[in-house]
Nucleic acid binder design. Structure first.
Lengths: 334, 334
DNA sequence: TTTATTTACGAAACCGGTTTCGCATTAATT
DNA sequence: AATTAATGCGAAACCGGTTTCGTAAATAAA
């Protein structure tokens, strides 16, 4: 049995409401009484029940982060950014992993409608089924903010990077370095950010007078080894691919593996650039040129929007924040 | 206003308790009534309030993970392991980052006593202040389980790896590969796992007839660049260090940086082995020999213990699970 | 037929806070 | 001195569920 305000009230022979008001430092209560209550509460090591009050005022001081996975530098840094703001505001963070499953994402969002949290920050899964209706439904009942992997159809706040431009620049970079046969690889799924990146890639090809075909975009799998095999096949084909834009961090590893396996030298035979936030990119063999997203700042921005919304200071529907990515040139594209 | 059982009761002209029982499929309620209630609930898209019931039965179906950081492969994999079990059991996961600060850890644990969660999984911070009394206090009120970074003084369940043995083997490995001047580097903090690893290191030196001095163990900093400088100084000194055991993943990066900077060839001049779960260790220049901890399995084990405890099936005080680490030999120690 | 038991449901307490409102007592105003 | 306002506190409702207990009607046993 933990200590409650009723016990304090009983022991001090005062009303429950008096204790409650005293603890919240209400002006209705005399300094004398407050002192007594605070003193006794401290003595009993009173910790208020986190959810008792949440029934009445509908505030849990919990927020949810819904994302595909945590073992990815972008996401873990984003969590860090969100957490830094949440901790400062005295909020608690719940983490939900979808593992790219739409079904899971759907059931998670469904559950979140039960008032377990005050708001949701989400980076949508890359599964097949579309569940934007669920997103919209949740957003109608509580603040919901997209970060990075957004859902265009849902009318709420979004925090993202300049995917189109940065992918365009990344592709330009490869071509300027002399690549003739560039490919764009992505994992399965129908993600807006990947589409944007692919569009940027295509724009670059167009501008360099390259005729774009389906062969230029390679669709990998969610499974690492499958992706590896697909990449190996493409690289070892007689197309003589000499440039790869990896739209996601995970695939960069498989490209490296494939190049090692096929005895293709990076950057001499194949140049590689990847969207990645890996800190150790500089220590790879060879150091990997990356498009680094401002993951921490995006997390901060998304969380800040959420708390402003909770304080009724803004209308989420009007918010859209775009932060720039940074191209870090290294030896893999030298 | 979300829909509540009271609204359902009112609309259906039956009692609140009837609705509650019907929804929980109680035998007290006729199939006929249950059907009506379920039907209407589905129609209104009823989602029960997550915390209303938690007041009465003291179950939130939330668990907390308290750990130093999330941008570390060990921790992110451990979270994955925990989450996999939690999701299966229908529990929700709250994540708390301490950033190695004891003060933060203390205030987090203090807050958790307010019944926000049903149990805690913790990997303690490496700060200076000792706060095992808080751990003990929390453990007295609710299930608390240590994983990896344990707190010996607190009498509750612990899930860890064979730190002593694996460090002993790692050091043996270096010496067998011909290293004469081996050092052990660790970050600041007073962690049991680091102490164990250091003891294993020292045992190996002893057994190989090496006289152990303070010089053999190098204390780095929490700050990356400070650590880098410290490591660089040691490696470039006239001691001719030719073997490094990194007790934490983060430091391996700094060792690589330092070797590159000082033009020390790995493994020819310096051999490096690190406690690390990095998947891309094999892609570093050169591939890094690692002691891999079973992070996912440890998370699973810890979560499983927690849920057994919540089901009153076990006494946490008697539980202690030790999982073996695996030495992955690569070129950095060739 | 009478009594015992089961079935199906309702009323109300309860969990631990917050908040509204009412009522003394004291202080200020006329 | 009489009226008004402010102060300090208590009783009780409330949030949205669960759970206990009581009871009327239907069924079974005596």
């Amino acid at each position: 049995m933990s200590v409650t305000i009723r016990k304090i009230a009983k022991d001090l022979k005062i009303a429950v409401s008096t204790v409650s008001k005293a603890l919240s430092d209400s002006h209705e209560i005399s300094e004398e009484t407050k002192r007594k209550v605070f003193e006794y509460a401290r003595q009993l090591d009173y910790v208020p029940n986190a959810y008792a009050g949440s029934l009445k005022n509908r505030k849990t001081r919990n927020i949810a982060i819904v994302l595909p996975e945590v073992a990815d530098t972008f996401f873990s840094n984003a969590i860090n950014g969100i957490d830094s703001i949440a901790q400062a505001k005295g909020y608690h963070v719940m983490v939900y992993l979808t593992h790219e499953s739409c079904e899971r994402e759907e059931s998670i969002l469904q559950e979140l409608r039960g008032g377990r949290v005050d708001g949701v920050l989400i980076s949508v899964s890359g599964g097949v089924k579309k569940n934007s209706h669920i997103h919209a439904q949740v957003a109608a009942e509580m603040p919901l903010i997209f970060f990075d992997r957004i859902c265009d159809e849902v009318d709420t706040a979004k925090v993202l990077t300049d995917d189109f431009e940065s992918s365009y620049k990344a592709t330009n970079h490869l071509i300027e370095k002399g690549c003739k046969e560039v490919i764009f690889i992505s994992a399965a799924g129908n993600l807006s950010i990947i589409n944007k990146r692919q569009e940027g890639f295509i724009k670059s090809l167009h501008e360099h007078g390259i005729e774009v075909s389906e062969q230029h975009t390679v669709l990998c799998s969610e499974n690492e080894n499958e992706s590896y095999e697909i990449i190996k096949n493409v690289l070892s084909s007689d197309r003589k691919v000499d440039g790869v834009v990896c739209s996601v961090e995970k695939l960069a590893m498989q490209v490296y593996r494939a190049c090692h396996e096929c005895k293709l030298s990076i950057p001499h035979q194949v140049k590689v650039i990847a969207f990645s936030n890996l800190q150790i990119a500089a220590l790879l063999a060879p150091p990997l040129t990356t498009v680094m997203q401002p993951a921490f700042a995006m997390g901060e921005a998304a969380a800040t929007l959420l708390f402003k919304s909770l304080a009724k200071k803004i209308d989420l529907k009007k918010e859209r924040i775009v932060l720039p990515s940074v191209l870090c040139e290294r030896e893999s594209t030298a």
